[in-house]
Amino acid sequence: MADIAAHRASPSPFRAWLSRVGQGRHLLGLLFLLPAAVFLLFFLTYPLGLGVWLGFTDTRIGREGVFIGLENYESLMGDSVFWLAVFNTLLYTIGASILKFALGLWLALLLNQNLPFKSFFRAIVLLPWVVPTVLSAIAFWWIFDAQFSVISWALIKLGLIDHNINFLGDTTNARASVIAANVWRGIPFVAISLLAGLQTIPQSLHEAATLDGATGWQRFRYITLPMLSPIIAVVMTFSVLFTFTDFQLIYVLTRGGPLNATHLMATLSFQRAIPGGQLGEGAAIAVAMIPFLLSAILFSYFGLQRRKWQQGGGD
């Protein structure tokens, strides 16, 4: 602490000013917050507002738009592709989230056992989540190839099917395939987060319940699940939000095809706005995602559990 005192003794005017500002923590707090606040206001809040505004205009690439009221939304109302994309997005989100939750919880329970090489398993299980989505999606694109799919090859060798599966060319198969690829990438996040929650549950609770004659299922149902539910709520909220707004995986694997069967709202918005040039309409589709996202957030906030993480923690 001696050198701190020495620093303070030096009478440079800058130091004096600094220490004056340092006394008022409100002023200093605003000063410290300034860089982040300016950044987020300019590159996050403003674009968010601009996006909502664009949704009410007929802006195109290279042409300023004029305010046209709800026209974009009216035309989307009668647009069957838009409604198909809404349906696909909901199907994709719900299907993938349920699978991610079930398989992720299972994997977390497995990893929570006493195993040799436990940390090694934990480390490699997280790999799908670490590598760039686009690059792993390209690998899936090759795995789902219509003629040379290794899955088809393996199933034919095993004698389960007799011709190649058309993974991405058939509407049902394409939907299942993109959900499978999304689940593959999402399982590690759910599993590792839930594992961290599982490790905070004291073993003694399980031992006591076993002595009282509880079965494995009862211990899971009445000890593990209730103690894990807060973290499940948070993890699944994140998972749902990220799945709902997914773009990369679809863009790589199908670009929305076949017959728009895998178009999500995000990919449709991109397609209309950037290659299509209709910035206004694209923005309207993006804005149409907001009510869904808000309801998911509010559901987890009010419906599941009021917790510190939602308010900046602390007290």
């Binding site: 590159f43 996050l44 403003y46 674009p47 968010l48 601009l50 996006g51 664009l54 802006t59 939000l241 990220f242 709902f244 707004t245 997914d246 773009f247 995000a266 918005s269 991109f270 706005a273 950037i274 910035l279 694209g282 923005a283 993006a286 804005v287 995602m289 907001i290 996202l293 957030i297």
Partner: peptide
């Protein structure tokens, strides 16, 4: 919680 897929169009314009 604001996803990039909502922001990319206005950001592109900016």
């Amino acid at each position: 919680l604001v996803p990039p897929s909502i922001l990319f169009i206005p950001l592109a314009l900016m």
